[in-house]
Every structure is written in structure tokens, then in C-alpha cells.
Design a protein around this nucleic acid. Structure first.
Lengths: 337, 337
DNA sequence: GACTCTTTGGAGAGCGCTCTCCAAGGAGGT
DNA sequence: ACCTCCTTGGAGAGCGCTCTCCAAAGAGTC
């Protein structure tokens, strides 16, 4: 028997009712006589019927999927091994699965890729976009907005625009780090910042410096890193060269902190004895590092889940105005500071 | 102007041709007079036309997406922070994007989720499935096969069945590790295996033991771990307790090796001076570990890309018989052994 | 110049579903 | 007993696209 997949029509015929009725029991719209429902369900089971997704979304204009767009500067698919994006994915998937929505993974690392993302959304392959972007200069938010694609960003957009987003109070995070150094009496602190074309990096740096200034330390040396362990090591080397007497280092993420600790240890410094180190994120490397990192916790999974929630809500009510949700960071004291 | 998205019909009217002709120039099927093509393209540009995906796939029976299914035992979305899955994702995305195919992420950690995966595929939401499964008892391959869903597995199926897959020669990997210990003259080696309900774990263990036996070491103590750093530490502790004189440890993945090294160092042993450690995978932790891990490299990205390639090929030619591609592991010598 | 063959545009039939509208029948009110 | 209202099933019109089939016109052949 070469039966192709059964359609609504087949089920209706077998149950002796109309297509509309079968559709009603499948979707639970409107009342259907319980006995007829029974008959229909039976027919569905017997035929092994399953609704065709394309046909359905052709008329409903809904696909039940959203695009999860990762916009790296040019890192390509390397981003997937970054624990930060892993945590985002986890948070997004965790929320979406409860709503029967599926994420399709897209990379927006080249202009060609960006165009493809917009086309993907415009042709209705997904109902909306979750955009994880770090660089302030990213053009995708504006393009998506123009194409009227429901979008929620992870991190506020480079230029102010009417779009929903979730974000962290990065300045607050910087202040938390500063407070820790003050608390443990460090007086010669420096910082390894993230890439300065990233809002979050700037904010962490600003918050840190301002809080230090308010505590009587007008100048905090800073070296720019690239959010990788290697860049953290390099930055630490430079810092040590220019300020050999440094006794506290705030790194703008855990990976860089890890790199810094390694250099410090290799140079015979004790951590936190000689130099205290504070990281940022509280991701896996913070725990794996020796000594374990004191860090500023960013609830990435929660933020990602919220981002998904905001999108799904917006999808259900397109009239809703854009929303922003800002999360608060938290100091996690471990061994390094 | 409240224009809804333009359709083929709109473009056709504007260009003064039929729907079929516009469809032809959009899809590049059949010849169309260059001048008419010009007119049509112009009309497309003027209207901002973009093909509707649902309508198209309703008739073509193709969606241009595949499901990337991660089947964890019950770990939930934590898997996304595991560098192993990150590497798989990277490899898959890297290949698929060159072919204009998009992966939708799905978790199959509960039976309910497994049913949803099968339904998702059956209703034609995706053209095929990439299934990353470790546990030999996973039922999804069989279900997918029964539903006639084009599928490619990462790791061979628990029970032999006509399905395509990519895999690593895990036994060969175990042998490579054994050879290293023999080469550096270790005589009291033990191993921390992965979960034994995972084929790969069994194979690595078997390969390792057999090779050691062939070199005159009939018995290799083994403790079962769970592929996490913590489980590696726990296993090392037990091993040390039962065999205090151990001078070589083969851990079935880098994460566990990392955990083991930590315990060793904490107990005052030198690595590799007193105890040499060999990991498996060659993922990020192998490099981050101090000392850097000597490990068995598994080309995960390549394997994942191949998995995607095999699926895409099968999609284009459904008659093609199942294929299996086995990759060879490689010894990477660093500091720990 | 009549023929066949090739090229290319148009017409129209679906793909499988949802949803609006209509009709039939039963319940309730007077 | 009549009328209105509510409930519920069916008919049928699309949703936007592809693709087969047909026709017209041009090219080539003898």
C-alpha cells in the first residue's frame, strides 16, 4: 500500500463528516457534538492523520517558529562554543518549548547573512526574531524594524529605536566590582575591559571607574580585551608592565579573568594574596578557574528566557508597544577576590 | 498606505505578464525572454515582492529547514553549555548555511519531547532530522525511521538499523591513548570511563584495555564517570584510594580529565611527573587546563558538517541507501602526558 | 511555401488547510 | 402553536504558490 500522508479530506470521508468539522475537532475551535468528536478522533487515529504545517500556516500566517539570530562581528560559527551563547540558547529553548515554539538558528556575521535573515523573516519562515547582538553598530535591528518584523534584542540597540529588548545593568555590575575592591582594601586597581564598540563593555568600564572615583581613586588604568582568555592574558601582561604594583584587576568577563589569573600565577603573584581578580558573567570558566573566580553574576538564562517571553507575547498582541526589561547583576564571592 | 505584502499576482499585474512567468524568473526555471525578465525584475523591485514560504512549501513539499535534535538523557537545556554540543552546532551551521538550509533546534530529553519531534517532522515542518544522541537506548532513531523521516545520526544507533550516521573510531582512540602511556613508560595506568550506557564510552574503554593488554598489561582499573568535570574529580579520588600508586590516567573526555588533574594536583601529585593524564575530544577545556591536556582529538566540527552533508544529499535523492562515515581520532600531545 | 520542431508565455488546476457564511434543527418564551 | 434565538454541521472561497498542459510564434528543413 503506497498511501501518501492522509489529509483532512481523507479523515472527513472516513468519519462521514465535512472537512470543517474535522478541522474543528483538531483545533478545538467551536463546539462539536461529543459523539461526532469521538468518531472523528477515531478516524484520525485510524488514518494516522497529522496536519500539514505548510498548508496551515499558509492561511493562519503563523509558523510557530522564531529566528534566534546570533550576530557576531565576524567570528562565524565559533560563537557556539562560547559559554555565553550556550547559556542564551539554553534560556531561549527552555522558555519556547513550553509554548510549542521552535527556534531556528541563524548567524548574522556578514552582510550577506544579514540580508538573508531579513528575507527569511519577510517571507514568513518565522514569526519573529530574537537577536543576540553585542556590537553597537549592528544594523540588523533597524532593518528588522523597517521590515516590521517582531523583534526582541538581547542588549539595547546601538541607536535608540522603538524595539523591545532585555539587558543587564552593566554599570551597576561595574559598581559592584569596585565596591568589592574597596571592601577588601585594594588601592591600586586596574581593569581589562571588553571591546569598546560593545555597549556592555563601555558600561561596565564606566560604572567601575565612576564608583572607584567616588571612593577616592580618580584614575583606573584600563586595557581593552576581546572577551577571550588569550586577550585577557595579553592585557594582563601589558597591565603588569605598565603598573607592576597593581593589587586588583577587574576583567569584563570570566574568560578574560581566567587568562589574567594564569599570567599572574605564571609571574609568581599570588591570587588573591598579591592581586585580587574579579570577573564578570559567572559562567563555567569562573568555577573551573583556580582559584575560583569572584565575579559579577549575569543571569543570562533568565534574561534569554525573558527575551523569548517578550517576543511570544508581542506575537500574540502585535499592537503592544515595545518593552525593555533590565536585570540586576549580583556579586558572587569566591576565592579570587 | 496599508499595503499587505505583495504577491506573485501583484507583480504579474504590474509587469503585464502571467503569474507563471513571474514564478519562472523568480525560480530561474525554464527560459524567459531577457526583456520580459527585465520587466519582471523591475516589477519585483518596485513592489518589494518576496515569495511566501508557506505557499511555496505547500506545493514543493520542501521547507528548507532541518531539525537539529539533541537527545540528552534528561539534562534538559544544560547541554547547550557543553562545549561538545557547541562544536556540533558550529559544524552543522557551517555546512548548512552554504546550502541555504536552516536548522531548528530541538531537545529530546523526555518522552513527550520525543513525540513532539516526530510530529514536527511528520507534519513537514522540517525536511529531515540531524540527531545527536549518545545513549544507546535512545528510541528516536527507530521512531524516525518508522515515520520515514530522512535522518542522520551522530554516533551509530543502539540497535543496528538502516539509517545513516557519522561516528568516530572510538576504539582506535582508546588504542591511541594506550600507546601514549606505553611510549612514555607508564606501567600502572587506570581509566575514567564515560557512562557505560553510551556506545562511545564502551568503545573507548574496550580499545584502551585491549591495547594495554596487548602490551602486557592484562588489567586496567576503571571507574565510571559522567562526562562532567565533577564526575572526573570524584572518579579520580576513588582511583587514588584504590590504587595509590597509579602513574597514568586515561579519562574518556577532557572535562573529566580536567577534574582528575585538579584532584591530582590537590593531592600533591605532579602532572605529568607523578601521574600522566590523557583526555579525549580536544575541546576548549583541554587547552584551558593546567597543565594543558594531552588528548585524543575528535574532529567534532568536521563530523557534524559531514552529518549535515549526508542529510542534505539524502534529501535531494531519497532513493539513496543509508551511509555511514567513520572518522579517525588523533593523538594531540601537550603537557599532561 | 508547407511542413515539423523548438521555444516560450498563459491558463488553470491543485497543494491542504482555515474560516466565514449559511442552513437546519432544537430550545425557550409567550 | 408560533416565533425567535442559539447551537452546530456543511459548503465553498480563498491563502500564495508551482507546474502541467496547451497554444502561439518563430526557426529550420525540403
Amino acid at each position: 500500500m503506497i498511501r501518501s500522508t492522509p489529509t483532512l479530506e481523507d479523515v472527513a470521508r472516513l468519519a462521514g463528516v465535512s472537512r470543517a468539522t474535522v478541522s474543528r475537532v483538531v483545533n478545538g475551535t467551536r463546539n462539536v457534538d461529543p459523539r461526532i468528536q469521538e468518531t472523528v478522533r477515531d478516524a484520525i487515529a485510524r488514518t494516522g492523520y497529522i496536519p500539514n504545517h505548510a498548508a496551515r500556516s499558509l492561511v493562519t500566517r503563523r509558523t510557530g517558529t522564531v529566528a534566534l539570530v546570533i550576530s557576531g562581528a565576524g567570528g562565524g560559527s565559533d560563537v557556539f562554543v562560547d559559554p555565553f551563547f550556550g547559556r542564551i540558547t539554553a534560556g531561549v529553548v527552555d522558555f519556547l518549548r513550553t509554548r510549542g515554539v521552535h527556534p531556528v538558528l541563524m548567524l548574522a556575521d556578514t552582510d550577506r547573512a544579514r540580508v538573508e535573515v531579513v528575507e527569511f523573516l519577510r517571507q514568513g519562515s518565522a514569526d519573529g526574531a530574537l537577536l543576540v547582538t553585542t556590537h553597537a553598530a549592528e544594523t540588523l535591528p533597524a532593518r528588522l524594524l523597517k521590515a516590521r518584523v517582531p523583534t526582541v534584542l538581547f542588549a539595547r540597540p546601538g541607536d535608540p529605536m522603538p524595539v523591545s529588548y532585555v539587558d543587564l545593568d552593566h554599570q551597576g555590575g561595574g559598581r559592584l566590582a569596585a565596591a568589592r575592591f574597596v571592601e577588601i582594601g585594594r588601592t591600586r586597581v586596574a581593569t581589562i575591559s571588553g571591546p569598546l564598540d560593545v555597549h556592555a563593555s563601555q558600561d561596565r568600564l564606566t560604572g567601575f571607574r565612576e564608583a572607584m572615583a567616588r571612593n577616592g581613586f580618580p584614575y583606573v588604568p584600563a586595557v581593552e580585551g576581546g572577551f577571550t582568555a588569550a586577550s585577557g592574558s595579553a592585557a594582563m601582561l601589558r597591565l603588569l608592565d605598565e603598573h607592576p604594583d597593581v593589587d586588583g584587576v577587574f576583567a569584563a568577563n570570566d574568560l578574560m579573568a581566567q587568562g589574567a589569573v594564569e599570567v599572574l600565577l605564571a609571574q609568581g603573584k599570588r591570587v588573591p594574596g598579591d592581586v585580587a581578580v574579579v570577573g564578570f558573567d559567572d559562567s563555567a570558566p569562573a568555577l573551573a578557574c583556580r582559584p575560583a573566580l569572584t565575579t559579577i553574576r549575569q543571569p543570562v538564562e533568565l534574561m534569554a528566557a525573558k527575551m523569548a517571553e517578550v517576543l511570544v507575547t508581542a506575537l500574540d498582541d502585535p499592537e503592544e508597544p515595545p518593552r525593555s526589561v533590565i536585570f540586576e547583576p549580583e556579586l558572587v564571592v569566591r576565592a579570587s577576590a
